[in-house]
Structures are given as structure tokens and as C-alpha cells.
Design a protein around this nucleic acid. Sequence first.
DNA 1: TTGTAGGCGTTATCAG
DNA 2: CTGATAACGCCTACAA
Lengths: 346, 346
Amino acid sequence: MPKSLIYDVAQRAGVSIKTVSRVVNNEPNVRENTREKVLAVIKELNYRPNASARKLASQKSYLIALLYDDPSLYDNPSSNYVLNLQQGALRICKSETYDLLIHPCDYRDKNLNQEVSSLIHNSRVDGLLLAPPLSDQKSLIETIAATDTPFALISPGNKTLTPLSVFTNDREVSAEMTEYLAFLGHKKIAFIKGDPEHKALQERYSGFKDGMRNSGLKIEKNFVKNGDNSFGCGELFAKQLLSLKNPPTAIFCCNDDMANGVLRTAYKMGIKVPDSLSVAGFDDIPLAEQTNPSLTTIRQPVRSMTEHALEILMDKVKNRESKISPDDLLIKAKLVIRESTGKAPS
Amino acid sequence: MPKSLIYDVAQRAGVSIKTVSRVVNNEPNVRENTREKVLAVIKELNYRPNASARKLASQKSYLIALLYDDPSLYDNPSSNYVLNLQQGALRICKSETYDLLIHPCDYRDKNLNQEVSSLIHNSRVDGLLLAPPLSDQKSLIETIAATDTPFALISPGNKTLTPLSVFTNDREVSAEMTEYLAFLGHKKIAFIKGDPEHKALQERYSGFKDGMRNSGLKIEKNFVKNGDNSFGCGELFAKQLLSLKNPPTAIFCCNDDMANGVLRTAYKMGIKVPDSLSVAGFDDIPLAEQTNPSLTTIRQPVRSMTEHALEILMDKVKNRESKISPDDLLIKAKLVIRESTGKAPS
DNA sequence: TTGTAGGCGTTATCAG
DNA sequence: CTGATAACGCCTACAA
């Protein structure tokens, strides 16, 4: 069957192309009667509006770009985070009939600003969604803001960067986990920090400090390590910590990958988890319930965060009132207790 | 700075817009002299062609769709496969100045054909790349073929579906792994099959049979399980196998997720790997070197497979001679020996 | 509520 | 090799 145009529909329905256009775009000012008629013809002729023509005429691209840090650049096993981002974003895009452009990038790249800038200019995306740690890159954000393209941020460290952001309770829930470990009798608790560029991860450290204070525990300097989120550094720091004369009995890591590295080192060193060592992570990647032993961690609903963030972005893009309440913009994470934590050894 | 149009460039360079168009699109029939002049003006004015206008006029979308089975629908921890697909596809798209549309789908969905069909018609993609097990769905492929949109397949089971495919040596390398296990002294080797919809996985079973035969070993019926690729079924079948009166001393799984499930069950049952049991997987997901013990497996270069597949697809889309030799279309996997396999217990 | 005219910014045609 | 002019298919005014 030959592709039908808006003209064909208009002619067959006995109306003008503008009327067809109106029903296609769900605009008001069409009598219910004629709307139905047009709809019928559209179906009959299997008419599909030409996206390019529509974009050209309307000066929109119907494209949203999702920017995230390229997981392939790292020692990152479960690229689950990225997939969750994508799934959340795809869902909203679909319901808004937008297309999604995925754009992995290297936040350390000097040309990042320029690269994103040309993405905006070349692909003319109608909006951008930035995942951490990109959502913490001030100069990048300024670059985007300068183009006047709407954008939203997922858990940025700086809450003033844009009103279009979703946040997490990293700090509170990290304190909670710390208190849980203290409750199990642990007094010597180590902490492996995450990538300092990602501000939300710093909050986790703050939460750890809160939790220690609340539990009346002191933080030992040797017990705090500057990690980079990788499995490898979890392995490394665990080796250092567990080789200490007076080693910690619990290690709380800023993410699951590092916690998994700790598990691996403990295994190699013949240290039983959780009998002699408790390990906790953060993220609840799918792997967390498949490790030996399975991992106590914190679940963050990345997908729904992404959906909320994209929804407020779409509201902005489409210039309509947002239905999302501010409460929905603070996404709460929860403890997930599994096998890797237990009572402190006596 | 105001956006400049092709007219602005033409005027400033003292040529017609058609000449500018020719330069922009790298077409012949432009004097080197004027080409340079135009290029200079383009740079000066920071001219970027409007994608929508270009698409409308050229009747192309400059869009490639990547279809894969949605990993979120499964018990699939490392969504690494999908990310590798995406990375490979993005790289080629970038170099060809195409955009990539990712399209996760459910291959069991009855509306799949219709869904893909509307993707093709609505987004008017210039080409599609199908990953397994979608590349094995005959009716889907027929649906796509009927639209006359070029498409390529990644490791389809049926080699005649389209000349645009990349293949793997699943069978040969699986035989190799089996022979390796036999070489270690294992005689009682179990095999957990993968999703039957994915033909390449069946090849792995054929390879297992080859390997057993080549090693002069017999396959015991109880030792062959019909898995579904999930961690959970790895766990389950391991429990069954290891509870047998006369259990296998080695388990070869169709993928790493299931092998990881086996590892988990062995851990729970207190069975030492590799001392009492050898475990082998397939895929070499990043997790494979992070398990306890790390996993012997088979590495498949998914990313380069994807790149090759997309390159031949682009050749077709752009209607040009392919530079890819048929040899490059058979991608070879390799054994990766780690800790989970060892000599058979005596 | 509906229709008409004009333009969105390219690429394609075909003559020079 | 180069250029005028007509598509491309839809949307946005504005008018009726």
C-alpha cells in the first residue's frame, strides 16, 4: 500500500489538512463528530505522520538525550545502573512520543563540554537528562544552560543548579546502615568512599559519620579509604584493612562493586563472611543477591528516579504545569539485609 | 550567535546553496578551490545543517534501530551483553553520523511484530540490527523484510535468513571447553542448556556433544538440564545434580549467569569449587572474574560482532560496496581459564 | 469550529 | 563544475 499523506486523509475525510493535523496532535477545536471521522480515515489509510516534516515545521526534534558516564570506561561489572536509567527514560519517552538518544560520555574528558554542545546543536534535542556524576559537573551544566535547552539532573550534589532535579536520601540511609552495623555489635567499622566527583557519594560518607556519632562510635583514620567505585579498589583496600594488626570487623562500602571486591579479598584471605567480617554495600545491583555470601546493601530506585526526573523535564519541554509534587522528587532508599552482615565476632 | 542557514553560507561564500550542500555532503563535482572556501565559511559561521530538513528532503531518517531482548524482563544480573551491543552500535553510528534508537523488546510478546512494524513506520528507521534471540524469530524477520527496510542479524541460528549476519563458532568452542574438562580428568560432566529460542545456544549443546564424543565420554541423561539462562535455574539445577547419588564432577553451563547460580548452590551446599566440582560458563561477563572462585568461561567479543554487523548494514543502507570480508563475519570465541575448574577429584 | 496561505531548511532535478 | 527552482510533508499564523 502506498504511503498516505495528510492530504489524502483530508480529502478522503472531506476536511482540510489542518483539521487532520488537529486530530493527529490531539488539539482542541474539533467537533467530536469530525474527529471520529478523521480518525477512521487515518486508520483506513494507515496514515502515519512524517516525523521529519513535523519536526521541521514545528521546530522541534522530539528527541531527548540521556547523558551518563560510560560504564565501559571502568572496571564496572554490573552496568545495571545504566540500564535502569535507560528503562526509566524509555518508558516516559514512549508515553510522550519522544525518541531517546543515549549518550555515554567520559566525564573526565576535556572535550566533554564541546561534545555535548555539538550534540545539542547537531541533534537539536529538546531536552537533556543528566545522570551522576555528570549531574555534578558544573561547567558542563553551565554549557548546557547557555544553550537554553531544558535539562534535568539526577541526584546532583549541588541542589541549586537547576530546579529540575531529583534527589536521594543518601546521607540518612547511610547513617541508618551504620547504625545497623553498630547494633550488631560492631565497633571497628571501616568505610570505603566512592568517586569524589560524585557528590551524592560524599553524602554517604557524611551519613556514615552521622551514624557513627549517633552510635557513640569513633572513626579510626586508617579505616577510611578513598575508593573509586571499582571492584578492584574494593579488593585492594580490603587487603589493606584486613592486614592491619587490629582490623575492622565490618566494612561499609559506597557501592556494591567495591563491596564485592571486599568479598573477593576476604574469600582469598580465608576470612569468613559474616562470621569474622561483615560487609555492606550500596545500590543493590542484581548481583548483590547472587554473591557468596549475598550482600547486605541499600536499594536505590534508580528507575523511578529517572522517570520522575524525565517527567518534570517533559513538563518543562512541553511548557505545561507539572503534576509531580516536590515530595516525589526526594526518592528514598532502603536497607536490604542479606547474608554478608552478622553479629560482631566476640 | 544567530543560527546560520545554508543560504547564509552560500551568500557569504559567493556560491549557490547547492554547492554548499555538495560540500556538506561530501559529494563530488566541486572544485577543490571552492570546496575549501565553503568549508571556511561554514566554520566561520558555525553552520550546522538542520537534521529535520535534511531528513525531510532526502527521505531518510539517519536513524538505526537496535533491537534486543529486554534484560529487565529476566533474572539477569549483568546486563553487560546489552551494553556491549550498544557500545558497538554507537561507535559505528557515530562514525557514519547516524543516530541510534535503542529498542528493548520482549521476544515472547504476541504484539512484537506489530510493535516493530510501527517502529519502522513511525520512526522510519533506515536500518535495523537484531540481537539474539530476536535474530531467531522467523516471523519477526519476515515482518521486517516485508517493509523493505535493510536489517542485519547477530548470530542467527538460521544462516539463510539474510546475507547480512555475523556468526559465532559456538559449537566448536563448546566442544573445546568440553574436551578441556575431559582433559582435566572429568568423566561425569553435566550440561545446562540455555534458552531454546536462541539457536546459537543450541549450538553450544551440539558442541558439548561433539566434545564428549571426541573425548570418548558418554553423556548421561540425568546430567543434561533445560535451563533458561537465568541465575535462578543455575541454582536449581545444581541442587538437583549435586543431590544425585552419583553426581557429576563438572558442570558446563550455557552462560555465565547459570554458572554463577551453580557456584552459589555449591557454596550453600558446602561443596568446594574446584576441588570437588568444576564449573564452566559461557560469555565471560565482567562478573566472571569477580566471583568466588572466579569463573572459567568462554569469551565472546560481542562488541566487535556488533560493529561488524552494523558495518555491513550501513553498507547496505548507503548502498555501497562492503569492505568487510566474509572472514570477519565469523567471530571466534575463546576459552578463558580461571579458578572454577580443576582436576577431577580422584 | 474550520480552512487557506506561507514557510520550515534541506536535497533533487536539470539546465547551463 | 555550478546554480535556479521545485519538491519534501507538515505546522503556524491568520482569516473565515
